[in-house]
């Protein structure tokens, strides 16, 4: 079996289809990006810098980085552990576990925030107890982290599972037979084999963690300078008709998105064979 090679569009139909594709991607995908960059640069460099240097915005950037710095490593460790047990062993309920890992891809981010309110909100299961003990989860950092983790936890696992399935266990079993210990096997054989896929998963996870809006919006409480992440700060500024400031913040996140796309493409072109085939997102 061989795939058909790509060729320059020559027939009228081919040129027509190509034009439709280019037009639609330009209109639907590129134009919103151009809008962000255009609106952010409208007032010139000074209003842009003033907006970014605003204390509330700086606090929002710091909070966004902090949330991602907690959520992403936890999800990376989970992804490795889940991929190890799912691809290296047989056990009952594996299919169910895989389905649960996929669930955040189809649930609404609002649900991912709502569930934490039902647990830890004022009228949630543990609400009264938390108030009694003066512990703050929702409308505070822990809630933001939990909501972010729930939305982003499949990203690393979903990259590693198909790849480790394809790679099989031959090298690891050989090392074990020769007497290597568990962590030696992991660090010397497994990790070098999966490092690019791990990086790819971490990249997608980080991008989503820093840009998440719906889930954190539910649990944040929107306290300016305290529980607003950068996407939430954008919402507040936009709703207050501070358009330049809103788009200045938006352009920071758009820049991050472009860097993510660039790194992602580089990884895909450079290490196609070492990344999982058949990926879903």
């Amino acid at each position: 079996m061989r795939a058909r090679p790509a060729e320059a569009p020559k027939a009228a139909g081919a040129i027509g289809l190509s034009l439709v594709a280019v037009f639609w991607l330009g209109l639907i995908i590129l134009l919103p990006l151009v809008t962000v960059l255009f609106e952010a640069s409208k007032g010139g460099i000074e209003p842009f810098l003033a907006a970014v240097a605003e204390p509330d915005t700086i606090a929002a950037i710091q909070l966004t980085l902090l949330v991602a710095a907690i959520a992403v490593p936890l999800n990376a460790v989970f992804g490795i552990a889940a991929a190890w047990c799912v691809t290296r062993f047989e056990f009952r309920g594996k299919g169910l576990l895989l389905t649960i890992i996929d669930l955040p891809f189809t649930i609404s981010p609002v649900i991912a925030g709502l569930v934490w309110m039902l647990l830890f909100g004022a009228q949630g299961w543990f609400g009264a107890w938390l108030r009694l003990n003066d512990i703050h989860i929702v409308f505070a950092l822990p809630g933001l982290v939990l909501a972010t983790i729930l939305v982003t936890f499949p990203f690393v696992a979903r990259e590693l599972i198909p790849l480790m399935n394809d790679q099989g266990t031959d090298e690891e079993v050989a090392a074990r037979t020769l007497g290597a210990r568990g962590w030696d096997i992991f660090f010397r054989i497994t990790l070098p084999n999966i490092k690019w896929a791990l990086l790819y998963g971490v990249l997608l996870c980080t991008a989503r963690a820093m840009g998440e809006f719906g889930a954190v919006s539910v649990v944040s409480g929107h306290i300016r300078g305290q529980t607003n992440t950068l996407p939430l700060q954008i919402e507040i500024l936009y709703n207050q008709y501070e358009s330049v400031a809103a788009f200045a913040c938006a352009s920071i996140l758009a820049g991050l998105a472009l860097i993510t796309l660039l790194l992602k493409s580089v990884l895909e072109w450079r290490f196609a064979g070492e990344l999982a085939a058949n990926r879903r997102h």
Binding site: P32, L33, A207, G211, P231, F247, A250, L253, A257
Partner: peptide, 14 residues
Amino acid sequence: DLPFALPTAVAGIA
């Protein structure tokens, strides 16, 4: 892949 990478709030205001 831009819609995957671009935060939804950014896409929303744009």
